[in-house]
Simulated scan of single mutants.
Amino acid sequence: MDTLNPDHPPLVMTRAEHAPPVWKFWGTALWGLFIFVAMFVGQIGAVVLLAAQRGLPMDLASLQLVGHEPQTLALSVIMGLPATLLAVWLAIRIKKASFVDYLALHWTSWKQLLLGAVGLILIVLVWETMSRALGREATPGFMTDLLKSGRDKGAALLLLFAFSVAAPMSEEILARGFLYRGWSASFLRVPGAILLSSLVWTIVHLQYDIYFLAEVFTIGLWFGYMRYRAGSLWLTIVLHALNNLTAVVLTMWVGG
């Protein structure tokens, strides 16, 4: 038998051979940059397409004019999702890994969802209280103007879908999906991956001031922890969607 033959020792699988293929620190960072660029190109492509349909010249002034309209901005955010999915699929495909497993697209328990929601509510309430104490707006002024303008111009549902479905999916797939997966398997481990992916997610929101960026970063840390705790990206997508949905509804129809 081979087990008794020194020339043919038994095959023993090492832990590394069992580990699923995954991009590590630099691979994840470079592919993450590529995915972000793809998302941006998808968003800008929607603006260019709408400007071309109107017969406008392809210059910066025309693109800015079209891009500031609520319908255009909503379509831009929506078009960033398929571009993001395609770029992430390519990165995972090259590694010959499972798209679902790589991104942890598995549902979690209602207990984890409840915990995540309660934690999110507490974080938002703390920041809301601080905003009121400092005499600040709970929602950035430009977002309030955009959402109310969209409501008045008949783009409410489109904006609602863009900010409550498309944006959470795109951002979570990038941050808590692809970036967390690779960086948590690198020298950063889980704590470093949560911290760095939250920082990247915060940088994506540079249109906000430093106060709102701090709030975004805090929420990102909670999402990262829940991603680790539950092992589910769907959980953070749902939490992100609930957060955005509440903010959009309050701003559009309640005046919060």
Rank of each mutant, 00 (worst) to 15 (best):
K96H: 15
A133P: 01
R151H: 10
S170K: 08
L221H: 09
W183Y: 08
R227L: 02
L75H: 03
V22L: 11
V124P: 00
G177M: 03
G135T: 07
R181Y: 02
Y225S: 10
V200F: 15
Q112L: 00
A185E: 15
L245I: 06
A167W: 01
T251I: 04
G67V: 07
A175H: 00
I121E: 04
T72R: 03
R132H: 11
I210N: 12
L11M: 08
A133M: 10
T14H: 11
L75K: 04
A133S: 12
F36W: 14
E69L: 13
W127V: 06
L245W: 08
G150C: 04
A230G: 00
S197W: 09
V41H: 04
F34N: 04
A241E: 03
L233I: 00
H68N: 13
L157A: 14
R176D: 01
A155R: 00
L11V: 14
L65K: 09
L105C: 05
R132Y: 09
L196P: 02
F212S: 02
F25G: 03
S197G: 05
L120T: 12
L250P: 02
R93L: 04
E17S: 14
D59H: 09
W110K: 04
I35T: 13
F36V: 07
L60W: 12
L239Q: 02
L174T: 07
P57K: 08
L174D: 01
H106G: 06
G182Q: 08
P6H: 06
F161M: 07
M58A: 13
P191K: 12
V37K: 04
L120M: 14
L50N: 03
A38S: 13
V204M: 15
P140W: 10
E128L: 13
S76T: 12
L33N: 02
T14I: 12
L239Y: 04
L73P: 00
A16R: 14
G182H: 05
W107Y: 08
T129G: 14
D152R: 08
V88L: 14
V41D: 01
R176P: 02
S98A: 11
T72G: 02
W253A: 09
M1R: 13
A162K: 03
L4M: 12
L159T: 01
L199V: 14
A46D: 06
S198V: 05
A16Y: 01
A166G: 04
A193S: 12
Y102Q: 02
A162T: 01
G220N: 02
W222M: 06
A185G: 05
R15D: 15
S184A: 14
R132C: 00
D59P: 06
I44N: 05
W23F: 07
R181T: 15
F34Q: 05
W234R: 02
A241H: 02
L122A: 14
A117Q: 10
R189G: 07
G182V: 09
W31E: 09
G220Q: 05
E171L: 03
Y102E: 10
A83V: 04
F40Q: 08
H106Q: 15
W23V: 02
A230Q: 00
I44W: 11
V254S: 06
A155H: 13
D7R: 10
V41E: 00
L147F: 15
Y211S: 09
A156I: 03
E17K: 12
T251C: 08
T144L: 12
W31H: 11
V47F: 04
A247F: 07
Q207M: 10
S76C: 05
S197H: 08
D7P: 00
L125N: 13
D209C: 13
S197V: 01
G256L: 15
